[in-house]
Amino acid sequence: MFQVLRNPNSSKFQVSEFILMGFPGIHEWQHWLSLPLAVLYLLALGANIFILITINQEAALNQPMYLFLGILAVVDIGLATTIMPKILAILWFNAKVISLPECFSQIYVIHCFVAMESGIFLCMAIDRYVAICRPLRYPSIITKSFVVKATVLMVLRNSLSTLPVPVLAAQRHYCSRNQIEHCLCSNLGVTSLSCDDRTINSIYQLLLAWTLMGSDLGMIILSYALILHSVLRLNSAEAASKALSTCTSHLILIFFFYTIVVVISITHSATKTVPLFPVLLNVLHNVIPPALNPMIYALKNKELRQGLGKILRLRI
């Protein structure tokens, strides 16, 4: 389990694997959580795959707004699949061991997908802003080319900016403890086991949160403030209601996503005596939004709901 560091003058040992203990405080009966988590995971996979099939087969949904929704579905599938198979393996088969490269890779992918989801929410907010505030210019601004460019930009931004997180974590020395009180490799949970100074890790984590997700949230708030200002200037109450209805599902998802992110950040730093709550919240944040996102859009969006109805009838 341990290996000597390459430096011959060092008396420290470097662990070669981590052990994911699962949910802290409830190890003896945590396997009962496997059923609801498995249901949520299957729901996330099924709902998002169904959304992708619907968007692909319905010509009426071949629009930038729904293309962004399709990209969000891919991100949600990737995020849930990054963590759930390992969590279920821990709960069902007691497969708690994870190698250092696997752990650092999981840290990277989780950060990348979460940042990608935030970026797609920003793109969708821009799409709604142009559709409502600049409707005559919408066909020339929000094109399929715009969707491709925005997606590529987000992929490059998030993949490069989150890369230092696992790299910095891998630079730490893990010389004594290797048991992580978590179901997944979280950056703070892993680096807390290091024997050397991890200040740079904490600083970069904070900087990343403010520059990426903080700037995304700021731009989203600005977009919807401008949308609200434009809607309030409409003379027709019916037109205003119709304009706002196209944003409802998006606003629900944004509120849920960023609220949970803020709560997780607070509980990780403040909840030291009850570590179960931030761990459980962290796991649910990575599986509940992927399960809820397609259902909320399907319920609130008439065109998507009609497309899903057609696909269902084809399958029966």
Rank of each mutant, 00 (worst) to 15 (best):
F2P: 01
L5F: 01
N9R: 14
K12V: 12
Q14E: 11
V15N: 08
F18P: 05
L20W: 04
H27L: 06
H31L: 00
H31R: 09
W32M: 05
L37M: 11
L40M: 09
Y41E: 02
A44T: 05
L45I: 15
I49V: 05
I49P: 01
T54S: 14
Q57V: 14
Q57T: 14
A59Y: 00
Q63G: 05
M65C: 11
L69M: 13
G70C: 04
G70T: 05
L72G: 02
L72C: 01
A80W: 05
I83D: 01
I90K: 09
W92N: 14
A95C: 10
V97W: 10
S99Y: 01
S99T: 14
P101E: 06
C103P: 00
F104Q: 00
F104P: 01
S105R: 07
I107L: 07
V114H: 05
A115F: 06
C123M: 12
D127G: 02
P135D: 05
P135A: 08
L136D: 14
R137T: 11
Y138I: 03
P139N: 04
S140A: 07
I142V: 15
K144I: 07
S145G: 11
P164C: 11
V165L: 15
P166F: 03
C175F: 12
C175P: 12
R177F: 11
Q179H: 07
L184A: 08
N187T: 10
G189V: 00
V190R: 00
V190F: 02
D196R: 02
R198H: 06
I203F: 12
L207T: 15
T211A: 12
T211H: 01
S215W: 12
G218Y: 08
I221S: 13
L222R: 10
Y224H: 12
L226S: 07
L228A: 15
S236P: 04
C247D: 09
T248H: 13
S249I: 11
H250D: 13
I254E: 08
F255V: 09
F255N: 10
S265N: 10
S265I: 10
S265F: 12
I266M: 04
H268P: 00
S269K: 06
A270L: 14
L276R: 03
F277M: 06
L280S: 07
L281V: 05
V283L: 07
L284Q: 06
P290Y: 04
A291D: 03
L292V: 12
I296L: 14
N301K: 03
L304F: 12
G309R: 13
L314G: 02
R315V: 13
